[in-house]
Amino acid sequence: MALLEVKDLDVRFAVRGGDLTALRGISFSLDKGERLGLVGESGAGKSVAAFSILNLIAKPGYIAGGQILFEGKDLAAMSERELRKIRGNRIAMIFQDPMMTLNPVLTIGTQMVEAILAHRNISKKEARAIALDRLKKVQIPSPEKRLDQYPHELSGGMRQRVIIAIALLLDPEIIIADEPTTALDVTIQAEIMDLLLNLCEQENVALMLITHDLGVVSQVTQRMLVMYSGRIIEQGPTREIINDAQHPYTQGLINALPQMGEPGARLFQIPGSMPSLKNVPTGCPFHSRCNFATEQCKQAMPEYVRSGNVDVACYEVANLIEQEKRMQEAES
C-alpha cells in the first residue's frame, strides 16, 4: 500500500458566477521515502493540490470529490480534530515564505517547543532538547543561540533552515514543500535543496516538492507530475520524462529553456498562454496552444495512456502508441 494515495480529487472554488474547478480528477501516489516533483504553469493548481492533501483548502474552496488516503485513511472525510493530529506531525509543510510558518513575536525556541508539545506529552526541557537537535541537523551556525532569537534576526536562508528544522520536529512521514527556495539566491538555494534532500534520505521521509525549476526536479526527485489547467497531464519517473517527455506541453516546457537552444538563436516557444480557469475550453486544456491539436482534441478530455513507465493524457501520444503496436503486429 502506498503511504499516500490521492484518487480522483476534485477541488472547486465557489466564486461569483458559479464554481471554478481548480483540480479535475487528480490521481497520484507517494511511497514511503519517495521524492515526488510537481511542476506546471502558474495557476495550474500545484499549491491547491498541496493544500488539499492536508485538507487545508480555505473557503470559498472545497473538496468536491475524490479521496486522499494517508496510510489507508481518507483525509478528505476526516474530522478537523483528527486532521490536526496529522498536520505538522505526520505530514509537515514548508512554504515559500518562511513567515507563513513563523510567528514574528515569538522566539524560534518557543515556537519549536510549542509545536512539539501540541503533539507530544513530554516536558518542556525534553522538547527544547529535540528542538536543538533539529537545529543541529539543519546545520545552522550556533544552534543554541538561535533558540533565543526572533525570526527577523535571521537571514532568509537561515529562516528557511529553521523552517526545515520545524518540519522535522515530530519525525513526519511526508514533507510537502511548496517552492521552498524560490525566494532565495542561487547559491543559498543550492545549499537548502541539498540539505532537504540529504535529510529526507537519512530519515526516510517522503517529499512532495513543488517547483518551477526543472533542474531542481532532476536533482532531487525520483518521480514527477506535470500539471496544466487543474489536470495532471503527465506523470512518471523523473529521468524518463526529462529525457524524453511525451506530452506536447511538457516537451514545450523543456524545449523552451534557454539552455536547450543554441546561444543567440531563437528559442522554441509555446504560443499563447494558459486559459483562465473561469473559461476552460472543452476537450484537452492545452489544445489552443498545441501544434498537434486536431478536431478530436477540442471535443473531449483525453484519457491517460501508458508510454514506457509514463502516464500521459494526450490523443497524439495515444495515436503514436497505437501505430507502433500495429506496426509491431504487422511485423510479427
Binding site: 542561487v186 547559491t187 538555494q189 543550492a190 535543496m193 541539498d194 534532500l197 525549476d213 526543472l214 533542474g215 531542481v216 532532476s218 536533482q219 532531487v220 529521468r239 526529462i242 523543456i254 529553456l257 539552455q259
Partner: peptide
C-alpha cells in the same frame, strides 16, 4: 549552483 537537467544530485 545552477541546477541542470542532466544532474541527478546537487
Amino acid at each position: 549552483a545552477i541546477p541542470k537537467l542532466e544532474d541527478d544530485r546537487p
